[in-house]
Computed example of a mutant assay.
Amino acid sequence: MVGGVRAALGLSLTCVSALSLLSPAWFQTPAFSFGILTYCSWPPGDSRNQSCSAFRSLDDIPGFAWKVSVVLLLGGWLLLGCSAALLLSWALAPKGLCPRSGTGPMPGIQAASAAITIAGLLVFPAALASPFAKEACGVSSVQHGGRCRLGWGYGTAMLNAVLTSLLPLIGCPPKTKAQGRPVVFSSDTQRIIIVPEMSK
């Protein structure tokens, strides 16, 4: 049951992450918006008549910081997707085929995915210093967005990274140390044997 919930949450976060990566609404002006992989423009006052394009390769992406951010964000997304697919396969597999106890390396992979995604999100604002962003946003830099303001795509990616960082904690029971003296039941004699407590 817990494995199925973890798999469903992982798949949901993977889909939301893909939506934010494909969104052109990371930074917006009244007539232009761009995201990590796509950008759109429209006549002022007519946002329904949009013309959108995508960066087709890493060479098309303007600026070194932007390229680093793309590589990090896509790497985090792939790790999250792989962990969600493995958790789903374990949840749907017959009981005897896969061990149900433990989650294997999945919490570590999910934590790595969250860390890589957060690093990519922290690097991306440096793309505002690229010539592409300066043309769209006016006088923009790493600290100042010029005419551009944050859009829902970047906010969704940040929220998704926070939720992904919490995903490894779901389903991990807290470890508590038992207090008192252990009691061993002997099956041959049907008696209770009390074992004295060992001092450490």
Rank of each mutant, 00 (worst) to 15 (best):
F32Q: 14
T29L: 11
S41I: 02
Y39L: 05
G45A: 06
C52R: 07
R56V: 02
S47H: 11
D60L: 06
A54R: 13
G35P: 02
D46Y: 00
S57E: 01
S57I: 02
S33N: 09
L58H: 01
L58S: 04
F55K: 06
S41C: 05
T29F: 06
Y39F: 15
A54C: 08
S47A: 15
I36P: 00
Q28N: 12
S41H: 13
R48C: 01
L58N: 01
Q28W: 03
S33P: 03
C40A: 08
A31V: 07
D46E: 12
C52K: 11
S41F: 05
S51W: 04
R48I: 07
L37F: 06
S33E: 15
C40E: 06
P43S: 13
A54N: 12
R56F: 07
G45I: 00
A31S: 15
P30F: 03
F34E: 03
A54Y: 07
A54T: 13
A54F: 10
F32S: 14
D60H: 12
D46M: 10
Y39N: 09
P30R: 15
D46N: 12
L37C: 02
D59K: 12
W42P: 06
S41W: 10
G35N: 00
Q28E: 12
T38V: 05
S41A: 15
A54S: 15
S57H: 09
T38A: 14
I36C: 08
Q28D: 05
T29Y: 08
W42A: 09
S57Y: 06
T29N: 12
C40D: 02
S41R: 14
